[in-house]
Design a binder for these strands. Structure first.
Length: 281
DNA sequence: ACCCAGGCGGGCG
DNA sequence: CGCCCGCATGGG
């Protein structure tokens, strides 16, 4: 057992907010406990009521603490980021509602799968599909928890078997993504190559368009310039900044770059989550 | 019953 | 180019 000091971190909001980690971590909001397999082992993180200390339990404490710190982006200076994205009353309320919500930095392959599954879908069902994939194809760690399945394992499954996990028409994309990522492109090699480069390479994958590529760039590679625009972000931005008038994606992208600059990926996460849960339709 | 979901690829004008 | 359509599935 070890404790680490954290600032501007709210695990509850982070875990709830529709990111890859969300889709397989178990979270007990009453106890303030998250459990997830970090790729090699089971990790338990406890944070009571947005406190500044979290407790970590894992077989290999050191590895768990390092991975946790990276995955929850603890080295981000949130004071600076908030001052960059708190540009108006709407952003101010979003930050006040969900302060401490972090972007997470996830495995690129896992992120790719999660966001291919996200298209024309909803959070609840994405989560179920991801859990199903893990149960069927995931690899058990020695502590019994299950790691997200590697592309080799997904590739070995038939499209019909994948469809059986409830993913519908996305099975074709998942299957071909697994093939590409084992044969044609090395996802890990894209790390640190820069936003434009990462994004254009990701879009080579069938089933990965602009929005999904932005999600992967943001949450799988930590490219904070990525600004994924889904139906909620679009709706919310139109309502808040354009008097409810419809705007094209490109227009909204330019607006975001202008308004929130290099940290616009963080702005997007707050717009998305506050838009979906508070502004609603 | 009907509409929608963290969109995308393909086809058409 | 831009626009429009179908797509599997489950929940509101």
């Amino acid at each position: 057992m070890s404790e680490i000091q954290v600032m501007d971190l709210n695990i509850m909001h982070t875990i709830a907010s529709g990111q890859p980690l969300t889709f397989h971590a178990e979270y007990d909001s009453g106890a303030g406990i998250v459990k997830y397999n970090n790729g090699t082992q089971l990790v338990m993180i406890e944070q009571r009521a947005a406190r500044t200390k979290v407790r970590i339990e894992a077989r290999d404490q050191n590895q768990a603490a390092i991975e946790f710190s990276k995955r929850f982006r603890l080295s981000d200076n949130m004071k600076k980021i908030y001052s960059a994205i708190n540009t108006d009353a709407f952003m101010d309320s979003a930050i006040s509602n969900y302060g401490g919500m972090r972007l997470t930095l996830n495995d690129p392959w896992e992120t790719t799968v999660c966001f291919i599954l996200s298209q024309y879908n909803n959070l609840k069902r994405i989560r179920r599909i991801v859990l199903e994939l893990k149960e069927r194809y995931g690899e058990a760690s020695t502590d019994g928890s299950i790691a997200f399945p590697k592309p080799e394992r997904i590739k070995a499954a038939s499209e019909a078997e994948l469809k059986d996990c409830g993913m519908g028409f996305r099975a074709r994309y998942i299957k071909s993504a697994a093939e590409m990522c084992t044969e044609n492109i090395d996802l890990h090699a894209l790390t640190g190559k820069g936003y434009d480069n990462v994004k254009s390479n990701l879009m080579e994958i069938c089933g990965v368009g602009e929005k999904v590529a932005d999600c992967i760039a943001l949450m799988g590679y930590g490219e904070l310039e990525a600004f994924p625009i889904d139906v909620w972000v679009k709706r919310t931005m139109e309502k808040v900044y354009f008097k409810g008038r419809e705007k094209k994606i490109d227009k909204l992208m330019d607006f975001a770059e202008e308004k929130w600059g290099k940290n616009r990926g963080y702005a997007q996460q707050y717009i998305f989550w506050n838009g979906m849960n508070v502004v609603k339709r």
